[in-house]
Amino acid sequence: MAYYNIDPWGGYRSDIQTAKIEAGITSYTGSLYDILSFNPNPLPAEQIEKRAKAAQIAKLERETQQMAKMFDVA
C-alpha cells in the first residue's frame, strides 16, 4: 500500500505512461491530456462553460484594474 502512494499503478497510470511514450516517439510538445485515451477529469458541459465564463470575467477585471492604474497617474 505504501508503494502505491509513491508510484501508483492501474488504468489511468498506464494511460499516462503510454501517452508519455507516444509523445517521446513522435516528438510531441503539447499537453499529454490531448493524447490521453480518456478524460481524467470529466465535467458536464455546463460546468465547463461556467468555468470558462468565470475565467474570462477574472481576466477582464484584471485588465480593467491595470488600465485604471494607467490613467490614475494624476
Rank of each mutant, 00 (worst) to 15 (best):
A2T: 07
A54I: 04
Y4G: 00
D15W: 04
P40L: 15
I16S: 00
P42H: 13
T18R: 01
G11P: 04
S14K: 01
Y28P: 02
Y3S: 05
D72P: 02
D15V: 02
T18D: 01
A19V: 01
Q17D: 04
P42Q: 09
K59I: 03
I21P: 01
W9K: 09
A68F: 03
Y12Q: 01
A2D: 11
K50C: 07
K53G: 02
K20Y: 10
P40A: 14
A23H: 02
V73W: 07
G24E: 06
A54Q: 10
T26N: 14
A45R: 14
Q65P: 00
F71W: 13
A74F: 14
L60A: 13
A2P: 00
D15K: 01
E22I: 05
I35A: 03
E46Y: 11
E22C: 06
G30T: 07
P44C: 14
I6Y: 05
A55W: 00
Q17G: 00
I16C: 07
Y33M: 12
F71A: 08
Q17H: 04
A19Y: 00
I16G: 03
Y4S: 01
A74T: 09
G11T: 08
Y4R: 06
R51E: 13
T64G: 00
F38C: 08
L32A: 05
V73L: 11
T26F: 11
A58Q: 08
L43R: 15
I16M: 05
A52N: 13
M67Q: 08
A23M: 12
N41T: 14
Q66S: 07
E63W: 03
R62T: 05
P42L: 12
E22Y: 07
Y4K: 06
G10S: 02
T29E: 14
R62W: 04
R51C: 04
M70Q: 09
S37H: 15
K59D: 09
A68K: 12
M67K: 10
K20L: 13
Y33I: 08
Q17L: 13
E49G: 06
L36Y: 06
I57W: 06
D15P: 00
L60G: 02
